[in-house]
Design a binder for these strands. Structure first.
Lengths: 196, 196
DNA sequence: AAGTTGATTATCAAGTTTGACAAAAAATAT
DNA sequence: ATATTTTTTGTCAAACTTGATAATCAACTT
């Protein structure tokens, strides 16, 4: 008995636009006007569908954490049975599969964490979770490696990956990507021979 | 015949404050009011001593590049004759010697590079220079290592270092720092035995 | 066709940020 | 002490950002 409710679709559309702006300009630089323009919508629609600025940030944060979890889950599930760790690296450093925006958003949110204690805790948890999952994967593949060394390698690979993703778009970074991937492989190989 | 000119000192004071704000809130979030408050000066003095917003950003960028060069130079000069690479790592990952602010500023400026092509080129050069210098250092210490591998290790260490510095202040990151350092050491050791 | 619900538009007020200028105060040389 | 130069303060207008509301338009149900 009424016009169809497309609020959910609009909401996603707006959060997509906001995410792009946050990745590009940082949280403080992502104004409602830029967001609306990016979404190709009038500014009042942002408010109508999502809410005020704080609502936007909260919604983006929640969606970011959700998407990260989902993405990581499917990432791990899609890994083959053999050579899981090496395949994981290949995907992480493959520009075709990578999602630089997500990493940039995470840096933006972490920067914004100075203002928001709850956000800081959430991002800390997100980071820990990322490393822990990679850690588990490596531990499975290298059962004979020393656990603390596995953790170090997981941390190192994460750092290299985050760095290269956050720098994506600066310029011609093909060589940076290649060298980063190679160093990640060196770290992986330092754990010995992978379980068959 | 006149009041003493303290413009240079004030300028540094203001740029220090602006740098802190940029590191904490990003370029877009570092308002003139926040900067003035951080510098404990009235806002009009910012304009009087440095200029408008663009002048501030330009001045900060120039000073950042200058400081980076100087810091890197003295860093390399102060390295001992023996075990140079390992000592470099110890310094890089020692919170006492590190300068997280500089790395955060670099990320903020890189984010802002979307707006400014010249800035993008400068930051790309800065990044390349950082890696290249580390590369040279490692090449000296490991003359028998394959050059491409040395470059990979230099890139990896840089990524791990940048990442951990940019995350500094998020929370209790002692374990992240320790694991990051350990992975950097693993990378270094992968080059073989250092030149005596 | 009419009514109902929700999307869209138009518009405005309040707050913030920036840019700019003029007047006042301070410090030094003569 | 006075003139000169520079800092410091006070102030204001313009531009931008945000928050909010009312009015209009569109689509679907009955």
């Amino acid at each position: 008995m009424a016009r169809p409710d497309i609020k959910e679709a609009r909401r996603e559309q707006i959060l997509d636009a906001f995410e792009i702006c946050v990745a590009r300009y940082g949280v403080e630089g992502a104004t409602l006007a830029k967001t609306a323009e990016q979404a190709e919508l009038a500014r009042p629609l942002v408010r109508h569908n999502v809410g005020n600025r704080n609502d936007l940030i909260d919604a983006l944060t929640e969606r970011f954490l959700q998407k990260s979890r989902t993405r990581m889950n499917s990432f791990l599930e899609m890994l083959p049975r053999e050579h899981r760790s090496m395949k994981a690296l290949e995907w992480l450093f493959d520009p075709h599969y990578s999602d630089a925006r997500l990493i940039k958003v995470s840096y933006a949110l972490i920067t914004h964490s100075y203002e928001n204690e709850k956000l800081a805790a959430a991002m800390q948890g997100w980071l820990d979770d990322f490393i822990a999952r990679l850690d588990s994967l490596l531990a499975e593949d290298f059962p004979n490696a020393e656990p603390s060394k596995v953790t170090a390698v997981a941390t190192g690979i994460t750092g290299i990956y985050f760095n290269v993703e956050s720098l994506h778009g600066l310029g011609n970074n093909d060589s940076l990507l290649a060298a980063s991937k190679q160093s990640a492989v060196i770290l992986l190989n330092s754990l010995g021979t992978a379980r068959a």
